[in-house]
Simulated scan of single mutants.
Amino acid sequence: MTDAGSSPEAIDAVPLRHPWRWLAAAVILILVGLFVYGAATNPAYQWSTFFEYLFHPRILLGVFNTLQLTVYSMAIGIVLGVVLTVMRLSANPVLSAVAWVFLWIFRGTPVYVQLAFWGLIPVIYSNIQLGVPFGPSFFHLDLQALSIPFALAVIGLALNEAAYMAEIVRAGILSVPEGQLEASTALGMSWGMAMRRTVLPQAMRVIIPPTGNELISLLKTTSLVTAVPYAFDLYSIATREIAARIFQPVPMLLVAAVWYLAVTSVLMVGQYYLEQYFSRGASRKLTSKQLQALANAQTESGHV
Protein backbone atom coordinates (compact mmCIF):
# COMPACT_ATOMS: atom_id res chain seq x y z
CA MET A 1 0.00 0.00 0.00
CA THR A 2 1.36 3.45 -0.92
CA ASP A 3 1.60 6.34 1.52
CA ALA A 4 -0.97 9.10 1.44
CA GLY A 5 1.60 11.64 0.23
CA SER A 6 3.18 9.50 -2.50
CA SER A 7 1.83 9.23 -6.01
CA PRO A 8 0.40 5.87 -7.11
CA GLU A 9 2.42 3.61 -9.35
CA ALA A 10 1.69 3.65 -13.05
CA ILE A 11 -0.55 0.84 -14.26
CA ASP A 12 0.79 -1.19 -17.12
CA ALA A 13 -2.52 -1.69 -18.89
CA VAL A 14 -2.73 -3.96 -21.90
CA PRO A 15 -5.71 -3.24 -24.18
CA LEU A 16 -8.03 -6.15 -24.83
CA ARG A 17 -8.08 -7.55 -28.32
CA HIS A 18 -11.40 -7.85 -30.10
CA PRO A 19 -10.81 -9.84 -33.30
CA TRP A 20 -14.52 -10.52 -33.78
CA ARG A 21 -15.25 -6.80 -34.00
CA TRP A 22 -12.79 -6.40 -36.87
CA LEU A 23 -14.20 -9.47 -38.57
CA ALA A 24 -17.77 -8.17 -38.25
CA ALA A 25 -16.69 -4.76 -39.58
CA ALA A 26 -14.97 -6.40 -42.57
CA VAL A 27 -18.07 -8.47 -43.36
CA ILE A 28 -20.29 -5.37 -43.18
CA LEU A 29 -17.98 -3.39 -45.46
CA ILE A 30 -17.95 -6.22 -47.99
CA LEU A 31 -21.76 -6.44 -47.98
CA VAL A 32 -22.10 -2.66 -48.35
CA GLY A 33 -19.63 -2.68 -51.23
CA LEU A 34 -21.52 -5.48 -52.98
CA PHE A 35 -24.82 -3.61 -52.56
CA VAL A 36 -23.37 -0.35 -53.92
CA TYR A 37 -21.80 -2.14 -56.88
CA GLY A 38 -25.03 -3.99 -57.62
CA ALA A 39 -27.10 -0.80 -57.41
CA ALA A 40 -24.66 1.08 -59.66
CA THR A 41 -24.69 -1.62 -62.35
CA ASN A 42 -28.37 -2.58 -62.14
CA PRO A 43 -30.22 -1.13 -65.18
CA ALA A 44 -33.51 -1.18 -63.27
CA TYR A 45 -32.42 1.87 -61.28
CA GLN A 46 -32.12 3.90 -64.51
CA TRP A 47 -29.51 6.31 -63.17
CA SER A 48 -29.57 8.42 -66.33
CA THR A 49 -33.21 9.32 -65.64
CA PHE A 50 -32.36 9.93 -61.98
CA PHE A 51 -29.70 12.54 -62.80
CA GLU A 52 -31.89 14.06 -65.50
CA TYR A 53 -34.73 14.84 -63.10
CA LEU A 54 -32.77 15.43 -59.87
CA PHE A 55 -32.76 19.22 -60.40
CA HIS A 56 -35.76 19.40 -62.71
CA PRO A 57 -37.83 22.60 -62.24
CA ARG A 58 -40.93 20.61 -61.32
CA ILE A 59 -38.97 18.67 -58.68
CA LEU A 60 -37.58 21.92 -57.24
CA LEU A 61 -41.13 23.29 -57.13
CA GLY A 62 -42.17 20.20 -55.18
CA VAL A 63 -39.29 20.70 -52.72
CA PHE A 64 -40.32 24.34 -52.22
CA ASN A 65 -43.97 23.43 -51.63
CA THR A 66 -42.98 20.66 -49.22
CA LEU A 67 -40.86 23.10 -47.24
CA GLN A 68 -43.78 25.52 -47.13
CA LEU A 69 -46.11 22.83 -45.84
CA THR A 70 -43.57 21.85 -43.19
CA VAL A 71 -42.77 25.36 -41.97
CA TYR A 72 -46.35 26.64 -41.87
CA SER A 73 -47.72 23.50 -40.24
CA MET A 74 -44.95 23.35 -37.65
CA ALA A 75 -45.31 27.02 -36.73
CA ILE A 76 -49.05 26.69 -36.24
CA GLY A 77 -48.60 23.37 -34.46
CA ILE A 78 -46.14 24.86 -31.94
CA VAL A 79 -48.43 27.79 -31.13
CA LEU A 80 -51.48 25.57 -30.73
CA GLY A 81 -49.42 23.06 -28.77
CA VAL A 82 -48.43 25.73 -26.24
CA VAL A 83 -52.06 26.83 -25.93
CA LEU A 84 -53.18 23.24 -25.40
CA THR A 85 -50.46 22.77 -22.78
CA VAL A 86 -51.70 25.78 -20.83
CA MET A 87 -55.25 24.45 -21.08
CA ARG A 88 -54.14 20.97 -20.00
CA LEU A 89 -52.30 22.32 -16.95
CA SER A 90 -55.11 24.73 -16.08
CA ALA A 91 -57.10 24.28 -12.90
CA ASN A 92 -60.25 24.94 -14.92
CA PRO A 93 -61.80 21.49 -15.51
CA VAL A 94 -63.54 22.60 -18.71
CA LEU A 95 -60.31 23.82 -20.35
CA SER A 96 -58.43 20.73 -19.19
CA ALA A 97 -61.15 18.41 -20.52
CA VAL A 98 -61.32 20.17 -23.89
CA ALA A 99 -57.54 19.89 -24.28
CA TRP A 100 -57.61 16.21 -23.30
CA VAL A 101 -60.36 15.42 -25.84
CA PHE A 102 -58.42 17.25 -28.57
CA LEU A 103 -55.29 15.21 -27.83
CA TRP A 104 -57.31 12.01 -27.65
CA ILE A 105 -58.84 12.54 -31.08
CA PHE A 106 -55.83 13.79 -33.02
CA ARG A 107 -53.33 11.38 -31.47
CA GLY A 108 -55.71 8.44 -31.70
CA THR A 109 -56.59 8.63 -35.40
CA PRO A 110 -54.22 8.20 -38.38
CA VAL A 111 -53.00 11.42 -39.95
CA TYR A 112 -53.98 10.12 -43.41
CA VAL A 113 -57.59 9.77 -42.23
CA GLN A 114 -57.50 13.29 -40.80
CA LEU A 115 -56.16 14.72 -44.06
CA ALA A 116 -58.81 12.87 -46.06
CA PHE A 117 -61.46 14.34 -43.77
CA TRP A 118 -60.10 17.87 -44.28
CA GLY A 119 -60.18 17.26 -48.02
CA LEU A 120 -63.90 16.59 -47.72
CA ILE A 121 -64.61 19.78 -45.77
CA PRO A 122 -65.78 21.66 -48.91
CA VAL A 123 -68.28 18.84 -49.49
CA ILE A 124 -69.46 18.58 -45.88
CA TYR A 125 -69.67 22.35 -45.38
CA SER A 126 -70.25 23.62 -48.89
CA ASN A 127 -71.75 26.91 -47.69
CA ILE A 128 -70.76 28.79 -44.55
CA GLN A 129 -73.15 31.48 -43.37
CA LEU A 130 -72.96 33.78 -40.38
CA GLY A 131 -75.96 35.75 -39.24
CA VAL A 132 -79.04 35.77 -37.07
CA PRO A 133 -80.75 32.36 -36.74
CA PHE A 134 -83.85 32.30 -38.93
CA GLY A 135 -82.96 35.86 -39.91
CA PRO A 136 -80.67 37.79 -42.22
CA SER A 137 -77.22 36.50 -43.11
CA PHE A 138 -74.24 38.82 -42.73
CA PHE A 139 -71.55 36.61 -44.21
CA HIS A 140 -71.64 33.88 -46.84
CA LEU A 141 -68.80 31.75 -48.14
CA ASP A 142 -69.02 29.07 -50.82
CA LEU A 143 -66.17 26.64 -50.07
CA GLN A 144 -66.77 24.61 -53.22
CA ALA A 145 -66.04 27.68 -55.33
CA LEU A 146 -62.64 28.11 -53.67
CA SER A 147 -59.43 26.26 -54.48
CA ILE A 148 -57.94 25.74 -51.01
CA PRO A 149 -56.23 22.32 -50.96
CA PHE A 150 -52.95 23.87 -49.77
CA ALA A 151 -54.66 25.64 -46.86
CA LEU A 152 -56.57 22.47 -45.93
CA ALA A 153 -53.34 20.46 -46.02
CA VAL A 154 -51.64 22.97 -43.70
CA ILE A 155 -54.60 22.93 -41.29
CA GLY A 156 -54.72 19.14 -41.23
CA LEU A 157 -50.98 18.77 -40.61
CA ALA A 158 -50.91 21.60 -38.05
CA LEU A 159 -53.74 20.26 -35.92
CA ASN A 160 -52.21 16.80 -35.85
CA GLU A 161 -48.81 18.25 -34.95
CA ALA A 162 -50.31 20.44 -32.23
CA ALA A 163 -51.52 17.36 -30.37
CA TYR A 164 -47.98 15.97 -30.17
CA MET A 165 -46.33 19.32 -29.46
CA ALA A 166 -48.70 19.85 -26.53
CA GLU A 167 -47.40 16.71 -24.84
CA ILE A 168 -43.78 17.64 -25.61
CA VAL A 169 -44.17 21.12 -24.11
CA ARG A 170 -46.04 19.72 -21.11
CA ALA A 171 -43.25 17.20 -20.46
CA GLY A 172 -40.67 19.98 -20.67
CA ILE A 173 -42.53 22.21 -18.21
CA LEU A 174 -43.09 19.37 -15.75
CA SER A 175 -39.37 18.52 -15.88
CA VAL A 176 -38.56 21.85 -14.20
CA PRO A 177 -38.83 21.66 -10.39
CA GLU A 178 -41.95 23.36 -9.09
CA GLY A 179 -39.88 25.40 -6.68
CA GLN A 180 -38.46 27.38 -9.62
CA LEU A 181 -41.88 28.79 -10.44
CA GLU A 182 -42.71 29.40 -6.79
CA ALA A 183 -39.43 31.23 -6.22
CA SER A 184 -39.99 33.41 -9.29
CA THR A 185 -43.50 34.38 -8.22
CA ALA A 186 -42.19 35.08 -4.71
CA LEU A 187 -39.77 37.60 -6.26
CA GLY A 188 -42.72 39.48 -7.72
CA MET A 189 -42.84 37.98 -11.20
CA SER A 190 -46.19 37.33 -12.81
CA TRP A 191 -47.05 33.79 -13.91
CA GLY A 192 -46.35 34.62 -17.55
CA MET A 193 -43.04 36.31 -16.79
CA ALA A 194 -41.95 33.43 -14.56
CA MET A 195 -42.76 30.94 -17.31
CA ARG A 196 -40.93 33.02 -19.92
CA ARG A 197 -37.81 33.84 -17.90
CA THR A 198 -37.42 30.91 -15.52
CA VAL A 199 -39.36 27.79 -16.49
CA LEU A 200 -39.23 27.73 -20.30
CA PRO A 201 -35.46 28.39 -20.63
CA GLN A 202 -34.84 25.35 -18.44
CA ALA A 203 -37.56 23.32 -20.13
CA MET A 204 -36.08 23.93 -23.58
CA ARG A 205 -33.38 21.32 -22.91
CA VAL A 206 -36.18 18.76 -22.76
CA ILE A 207 -38.37 20.32 -25.46
CA ILE A 208 -35.84 20.85 -28.27
CA PRO A 209 -34.77 17.22 -29.04
CA PRO A 210 -38.30 15.80 -29.52
CA THR A 211 -39.39 18.97 -31.32
CA GLY A 212 -36.58 18.49 -33.83
CA ASN A 213 -37.67 14.90 -34.32
CA GLU A 214 -41.27 16.06 -34.83
CA LEU A 215 -40.14 18.58 -37.46
CA ILE A 216 -38.27 15.88 -39.37
CA SER A 217 -41.25 13.55 -39.07
CA LEU A 218 -43.59 16.29 -40.29
CA LEU A 219 -41.40 16.86 -43.35
CA LYS A 220 -41.90 13.23 -44.34
CA THR A 221 -45.58 13.26 -43.38
CA THR A 222 -46.19 15.90 -46.06
CA SER A 223 -46.08 13.04 -48.58
CA LEU A 224 -49.57 12.11 -47.34
CA VAL A 225 -51.23 15.37 -48.40
CA THR A 226 -52.43 13.61 -51.54
CA ALA A 227 -55.38 12.62 -49.33
CA VAL A 228 -56.61 16.25 -49.27
CA PRO A 229 -55.94 16.12 -52.31
CA TYR A 230 -52.94 18.39 -52.80
CA ALA A 231 -50.80 17.29 -55.75
CA PHE A 232 -47.92 19.77 -55.76
CA ASP A 233 -45.67 18.45 -53.00
CA LEU A 234 -42.39 16.67 -53.72
CA TYR A 235 -43.76 13.14 -53.52
CA SER A 236 -46.81 13.86 -55.66
CA ILE A 237 -44.86 15.61 -58.41
CA ALA A 238 -42.12 12.96 -58.48
CA THR A 239 -44.32 9.85 -58.40
CA ARG A 240 -47.79 10.82 -59.58
CA GLU A 241 -46.91 13.40 -62.20
CA ILE A 242 -43.48 12.69 -63.69
CA ALA A 243 -43.23 8.95 -63.03
CA ALA A 244 -46.73 8.39 -64.41
CA ARG A 245 -45.80 10.29 -67.55
CA ILE A 246 -42.43 8.64 -68.29
CA PHE A 247 -43.38 5.21 -66.83
CA GLN A 248 -40.21 5.04 -64.72
CA PRO A 249 -41.22 4.97 -61.04
CA VAL A 250 -37.93 3.67 -59.60
CA PRO A 251 -35.64 6.61 -60.51
CA MET A 252 -38.31 9.13 -59.53
CA LEU A 253 -38.70 7.48 -56.13
CA LEU A 254 -34.94 7.77 -55.74
CA VAL A 255 -35.11 11.46 -56.66
CA ALA A 256 -37.75 12.08 -54.00
CA ALA A 257 -35.80 10.05 -51.43
CA VAL A 258 -32.57 11.98 -52.08
CA TRP A 259 -34.30 15.34 -51.64
CA TYR A 260 -36.06 14.21 -48.45
CA LEU A 261 -32.71 12.96 -47.15
CA ALA A 262 -30.95 16.22 -48.05
CA VAL A 263 -33.52 18.44 -46.32
CA THR A 264 -33.64 16.11 -43.31
CA SER A 265 -29.85 16.29 -42.99
CA VAL A 266 -29.98 20.10 -42.90
CA LEU A 267 -32.68 19.98 -40.22
CA MET A 268 -30.62 17.52 -38.16
CA VAL A 269 -27.64 19.91 -38.24
CA GLY A 270 -29.86 22.78 -37.10
CA GLN A 271 -31.30 20.60 -34.33
CA TYR A 272 -27.79 19.75 -33.13
CA TYR A 273 -26.78 23.40 -32.76
CA LEU A 274 -30.07 24.28 -31.06
CA GLU A 275 -29.51 21.51 -28.53
CA GLN A 276 -25.98 22.78 -27.90
CA TYR A 277 -27.29 26.32 -27.42
CA PHE A 278 -29.95 25.41 -24.89
CA SER A 279 -27.66 22.94 -23.09
CA ARG A 280 -25.21 25.62 -22.00
CA GLY A 281 -24.28 25.22 -18.37
CA ALA A 282 -25.52 21.63 -18.27
CA SER A 283 -22.91 18.89 -18.50
CA ARG A 284 -22.83 15.23 -17.61
CA LYS A 285 -19.04 15.35 -17.13
CA LEU A 286 -17.51 15.95 -13.71
CA THR A 287 -15.48 19.11 -13.25
CA SER A 288 -11.88 19.06 -11.99
CA LYS A 289 -13.04 20.12 -8.51
CA GLN A 290 -15.62 17.35 -8.42
CA LEU A 291 -13.03 14.79 -9.54
CA GLN A 292 -10.59 16.00 -6.87
CA ALA A 293 -13.29 15.82 -4.20
CA LEU A 294 -14.20 12.29 -5.31
CA ALA A 295 -10.53 11.22 -5.19
CA ASN A 296 -10.11 12.69 -1.71
CA ALA A 297 -13.24 10.91 -0.52
CA GLN A 298 -11.98 7.59 -1.86
CA THR A 299 -8.56 8.15 -0.22
CA GLU A 300 -10.13 8.96 3.12
CA SER A 301 -12.42 5.91 2.94
CA GLY A 302 -9.40 3.72 2.22
CA HIS A 303 -7.62 4.84 5.40
CA VAL A 304 -10.62 4.37 7.67
Score class of each variant (00 low, 15 high):
Met1Cys: 11
Gly5Val: 15
Ala10Gln: 10
Ala13Thr: 08
Val14Trp: 09
Pro15Cys: 10
Leu23Ile: 15
Ala24Gln: 14
Ala25His: 11
Ala26Ser: 14
Ile30Trp: 09
Phe35Gln: 05
Thr41Met: 04
Asn42Glu: 09
Pro43Asp: 03
Ala44Lys: 01
Gln46Ala: 06
Thr49Lys: 07
Phe51Gly: 14
Phe51Met: 10
Phe55Tyr: 09
Pro57Leu: 01
Leu60Asp: 02
Asn65Thr: 03
Leu69Cys: 02
Thr70Tyr: 02
Thr70Val: 02
Val71Gly: 00
Thr85Pro: 15
Met87Cys: 14
Met87Arg: 06
Val94Glu: 02
Ala99His: 12
Ala99Lys: 05
Val101Ala: 13
Leu103Glu: 04
Phe106Thr: 05
Tyr112Asp: 09
Ala116Cys: 00
Gly119Phe: 00
Pro122Asp: 00
Pro122Thr: 02
Tyr125Met: 02
Val132Ser: 08
Pro136Thr: 10
His140Ala: 05
Gln144Trp: 03
Leu152Thr: 01
Val154Thr: 01
Ala158Met: 01
Asn160Glu: 10
Glu161Ala: 07
Ala162Gln: 01
Tyr164Ala: 07
Met165Phe: 07
Ala166Ile: 13
Gly179Thr: 08
Gly188His: 05
Trp191Lys: 13
Gly192Ala: 07
Gly192Val: 07
Gly192Ile: 10
Leu215Ser: 06
Ser217Val: 13
Thr222Tyr: 10
Ser223Pro: 12
Leu224Gly: 01
Tyr235Val: 04
Tyr235Gln: 05
Ser236Lys: 00
Ile237Gln: 03
Arg240Ile: 05
Glu241Ala: 09
Ile242Cys: 05
Ala243Phe: 05
Phe247Asn: 15
Gln248Cys: 11
Pro249Glu: 15
Met252Gln: 11
Val255Trp: 13
Ala256Val: 11
Ala257Leu: 15
Val258Ile: 14
Val258Trp: 14
Trp259Lys: 12
Tyr260Ala: 14
Ala262Gln: 12
Val266Pro: 07
Val266Ser: 10
Leu267His: 14
Met268Tyr: 11
Gly270Val: 09
Leu274Asn: 08
Gln276Cys: 11
Gly281Arg: 03
Thr287Arg: 08
Leu291Pro: 11
Ala293Phe: 12
Leu294Arg: 15
Asn296Pro: 02
Glu300Phe: 14
Ser301Asp: 13
Ser301Asn: 11
